[in-house]
């Protein structure tokens, strides 16, 4: 396969910049100064806050069902109304946010770790390993995540682990494929040659030279994966292989109300709206973070 012939790395290894807490403050304030970044930070911040709060407090108990007030319209007692068992929809959505947050964090962590491992294999100097991993990724990438989830669900049943493993695996493959060109450019650069000649170990070269070069791609892919994981949770839970019944999640709220859509259309509006807003925020977050944390784009990080 022809790779770009001229290795022009994006970040010079000797570039001096801003590090540590100061860097984080600059990144955050740059994100905050843009409209889309601010929207993403607010939504994601609220999401985390609500997840934590829901561990201690929800407006109504999750298990307090009220047979006389099923499918109730929004009222002072039930801010978004009640579902088919008379349970408070707002409380369930609140509690669901922590399940979704957990799923997203685990999925992204797994996908990033798996993806980086694949990238490391693809840029390794053992040509059999490098070629073999490229071939394997090409072969596996066309298998949809939902099929992997269904395969896993047979022995494991419906569980959070099915979502995390299936999505993490699929998104990790995707990440590796997208990051490969940048990683190869860096791996074939002069400074990597010189680091190796100076006796740097392969892991050290990987983490100090190659990972920073694929960081922009990594950030965007991880945020896209996070958004897709939220959507996948809703779909897989509806198909009965995601979050098990009885555990609050947005997909759970969405799919329990589906059957009665014709009679109580309002109930279905809120969970879907919530998922859409959060996924938009996750996607915007990735773009904003990439632009704010890339020293080539954000001059404040170059110590200027």
């Amino acid at each position: 396969m022809p790779d770009s012939p001229t290795p022009t790395p994006r970040v010079r290894a000797d570039a001096r910049g801003v590090h540590g807490r100061r860097r984080m403050r600059i990144v955050l304030s740059t994100m905050w100064s843009h409209g889309t970044g601010r929207f993403a930070l607010i939504v994601l911040g609220l999401w985390m806050l609500i997840s934590v709060v829901s561990l201690f407090w929800t407006p109504q108990s999750l298990w307090k069902t009220d047979g006389y007030h099923v499918w109730a319209a929004p009222s002072r007692a039930h801010w978004l109304g009640t579902d088919g068992t008379g349970a408070d929809l707002f409380s369930w959505l609140m509690a669901g946010s922590r399940t979704n947050l957990l799923i997203v964090l685990l999925t992204v962590a797994f996908a990033a770790a798996f993806g980086l491992l694949l990238v490391a294999m693809m840029v390794s100097r053992h040509s059999a390993l490098a070629h073999g991993s490229v071939v394997a990724i090409d072969a596996l990438i066309s298998i949809p995540t939902v099929l992997i989830a269904l395969m896993l669900a047979v022995p494991m049943g419906a569980s959070v682990a099915v979502i995390v493993l299936a999505c993490g695996f699929g998104y990790g493959l995707n990440l590796a494929r997208v990051a490969r060109p940048q990683a190869l450019l860096a791996a074939h650069s002069m400074y990597v040659e010189s680091a190796l000649a100076n006796g740097a170990s392969a892991p050290r070269v990987f983490f100090t030279h190659i990972v920073p070069n694929i960081m922009p791609v990594l950030i965007v892919q991880c945020s896209l994966s996070a958004g897709t994981a939220v959507l996948a949770e809703a779909g897989l839970t509806y198909l009965g292989v995601g979050v098990p019944s009885g555990v609050p999640s947005w997909g759970h709220s969405l799919s329990t109300s589906v059957r009665f859509i014709n009679i109580y259309p309002l109930t279905v509006l809120w969970p879907g709206l919530l998922v859409t807003i959060v996924v938009v925020a996750l996607n915007l977050f990735g773009d904003a973070l990439r632009d704010a944390s890339d020293p080539l784009i954000n001059p404040r990080l170059r110590g200027a």
Binding site: G272, T276, N283
Partner: peptide
């Protein structure tokens, strides 16, 4: 961005 963020289930509904 918004179009890609809609859950299929909800879009259908």
């Amino acid at each position: 961005i918004v179009g890609g963020a809609v859950p299929a289930l909800w879009g259908g509904l």
